[in-house]
Write a protein that binds this DNA or RNA. Structure first.
Lengths: 197, 197
DNA sequence: CTGGTGTTAGTACCAAGTGCTAATACATAT
DNA sequence: ATATGTATTAGCACTTGGTACTAACACCAG
């Protein structure tokens, strides 16, 4: 192992720990052919926490993901207000994982998912399925944006068991997404009121 | 805190650690009103590893998940055939996590996501965004179904930088989803050598 | 009273550190 | 040539959250 300069070593150190957070100072010292103390000084300068903290961070991150990925699959966006068969509002915070790396713009299906989830939720029925949707992505959404989606139940066709819902998503009061959803439901509006909530 | 029997305590210990693997023996001792040594003996009998090992286990598990969840977010469905700016085919296996628990029918946004991903992929450009989509969910899809989606590029409006794509998804040769997507792209078909932007 | 089970206390030791002081090497500037 | 600064190394005390082990005590049953 050739002895690198401080800068080179620290650069490699960052990479190495990034790739494998489970490596000890001792192992790193051997790898870079320096003393353990040097590794410690390097970590300090680079503000890299000690092994146990790194492992803990990874563990905590994973625990977050667990909490995140389950409801994320269930309902996209957090429903903050709902009046069944009338209207509903949800918010969705766009994160790095929702955007194209190349340009930082949110993938369309995430916005669709938020709207679709809300359309399902607003329907006061056990069974609600999307039959048709016409959507328009009017403005790009970026990571860090908070998307607020409002659903309004527009009408019904009781014979065909259909409910029509309008959806509008905004970021900072600017419309980013519009959609008209045709939903299928088993029962008509108002037939579910035996058990009043 | 009432003093439980050994069995009760060990039962609760298992639960407690399961819920929060980050708890130390000392905290547990306080919680159960016994000595630290007792907690250690309990852990031995129950073969529960020490705090650091538990955290490490969580961290390692999460690292596995990372590999799994990333490509899942990147493209929904596996692209098995593609001819840029012409057509593409992807398959998507519907799993339990994609369906409503209540009725076992796939949530619409997963089918939309597969179609949307494919529409983005078929466009031979750095930047492709969904502008508008009209979709029809013609038949419910269930867990275990293999959805095959075909994308066909229908036309273009070079002035407006738009590309029109038709999508059809089938399960066992039966159509479950149809969509017309209007996509925005930076450059026209075949113009990808120019630096027009 | 003796034995078994459960619990507690205490000691020595370990890994992987932090925090601090001191020594050394080496090049650069004056 | 001597001083200054940076990089590196060594050593020691201390910390956390343990393991491994021994000894003691309480209490209940035979």
């Amino acid at each position: 192992m050739k002895r690198r300069t401080k800068k080179e070593r620290q650069q490699l150190l960052l990479q190495t720990i990034e790739e494998n957070p489970f490596v000890t100072d001792e192992q790193l010292a051997v790898q870079f052919n320096v003393s353990v103390q040097t590794i410690r000084l390097d970590r300090m300068e680079l503000s890299i926490p000690e092994l146990r903290e790194r492992i803990k961070d990874v563990a905590e991150k994973n625990l977050e993901n667990e909490v995140k990925s389950l409801p994320l699959d269930e309902v996209i966006g957090e429903i903050i207000d709902i009046e069944l068969d009338a209207r509903a509002i949800s918010i969705f915070d766009v994160k790095e994982e929702h955007v194209f790396q190349r340009n930082g713009i949110a993938r369309g299906h995430h916005l669709f998912a938020q709207a679709n989830s809300l359309a399902v939720a607003v329907i006061n029925d056990e069974l609600a399925l999307t039959v048709r949707a016409n959507v328009l992505f009017s403005k790009p959404v970026k990571a860090g944006d908070r998307v607020i989606t409002k659903a309004t139940v527009r009408g019904q066709n009781t014979e065909k068991n259909r409910t029509y819902i309008d959806l509008i998503s905004t970021v900072n009061n600017s419309v980013v997404f519009k959609g008209e959803f045709e939903m299928y439901r088993t029962k008509g509006k108002g037939e579910n009121d035996e058990t009043s909530y």
